[in-house]
Amino acid sequence: MSEDERSGTGTGWPEPVEPARPEGPAGEPDPRPEAPDADELSPLAPVEPAGPVERPVDDGPSDGQPTEAAAAGGAGAAGGGRGRVSGASVMIAALLALLGFTLVVQLRTTSTDPAAGATRQEDLVRILSDLGQRETRLRQDIAALEDSQRQLRSGEQGRKAALEEATRRADELGILAGTLPATGPGLTVSFEPGTGQITANRVLDAVQELRGAGAEAMQISGAGGTPARIVASTYFLDGENGGLVVDGRRLSGPFTITVIGDPATMRTALNIPGGVVASVQGGGGNVIVEDRGTVEVSALHDPLKLEHARPVS
């Protein structure tokens, strides 16, 4: 092929030769049977080459750099990849933020009392021990009540047990009310006036300390007059010449309180710093506390006369 033919195509290769259009009268089809269809000869229809067509090879730049089209395509692909990665990153970040918010809310909801968190380990152990002991006592009380219930429901034995239980409670209430005498271990507490007078407030303080220490029955006696039973409604007043008025009864000093209960516990309660013994000694008097293996509280308190209430069976 000559140089003129290669330069005429602009690519260095000859242009494909189109089939010749048959000549005939204008507007009439070709009368030949083997003539091609008019649509096939339309200038708009694609023309298939008669043989294989060789594509021009663009050597491109010789320095190994990509062409502009390839660079543009690569840039577009890279841009699309970066867009997809950015969207996934945003979704992951949103899920992580939601998870973190959920964890914070849960921790705040299930957080413990700050006071309990600041408690020392020794205090927590002590609290746990106290709760365990309380649980044990409650279980013992439940077992005792259930046993009493079974005895009360079991025929003749139940009636006997019910009578015994009622008698025991009546005796306890009689001792507390001061209508029954009582005996048992306890103390005698003697108040001796010195340079100062034994006032009613000092005696009342001693009675309250003894009650707090578990005293079950008490009576007070003086140098003159009959002993007086001490119950919940007992009152104390200062009398003449250093005496006392206890529930309307006049007593002269020195005074002695006889009490039934645990001797060690009651003695400790009376001798605490700033307690009854210290206050009486500070006022010029003296207090003598003696343990007794058996003491008797024989004074009785007159029962109240009820006007409206009546016991029922």
Rank of each mutant, 00 (worst) to 15 (best):
G74T: 04
Q106I: 14
A77H: 06
S111C: 01
A94D: 06
G87L: 13
P66N: 00
G100A: 05
E68M: 03
L99T: 06
A71N: 01
L99Y: 05
L98V: 12
L103K: 14
A94L: 11
L96T: 04
A75W: 01
I92D: 04
R84C: 05
L98W: 04
T109W: 05
A71E: 05
Q106F: 09
G79A: 15
A77R: 13
A72M: 02
V90G: 08
G100Y: 03
T110L: 02
A97Y: 01
L103I: 15
A78C: 07
P66L: 05
V104W: 09
G76D: 05
T67F: 03
A72R: 11
T109G: 01
G73N: 13
Q106R: 13
L96W: 06
V104E: 09
F101T: 12
L96V: 01
V90W: 15
G80E: 11
A88F: 13
L103Q: 11
R84K: 12
V104N: 04
G73L: 08
T109A: 13
L107T: 10
P66T: 02
R108D: 08
A72Y: 09
M91W: 15
R82Y: 12
G83D: 12
F101N: 11
A72N: 06
A88I: 10
V90Q: 15
A88L: 13
G74R: 09
A94K: 05
L95N: 08
R84Q: 07
M91H: 11
A93N: 07
G87Y: 05
V90S: 14
G79Y: 12
V104G: 00
F101D: 10
V105L: 11
G81K: 12
L98I: 02
A97K: 00
L99Q: 09
L107Y: 06
V85E: 06
V105F: 00
V85I: 14
S111D: 15
A75T: 00
V105S: 14
G73Y: 14
G100N: 02
P66M: 07
T110R: 04
A70P: 01
L95A: 12
T109Q: 02
T67P: 02
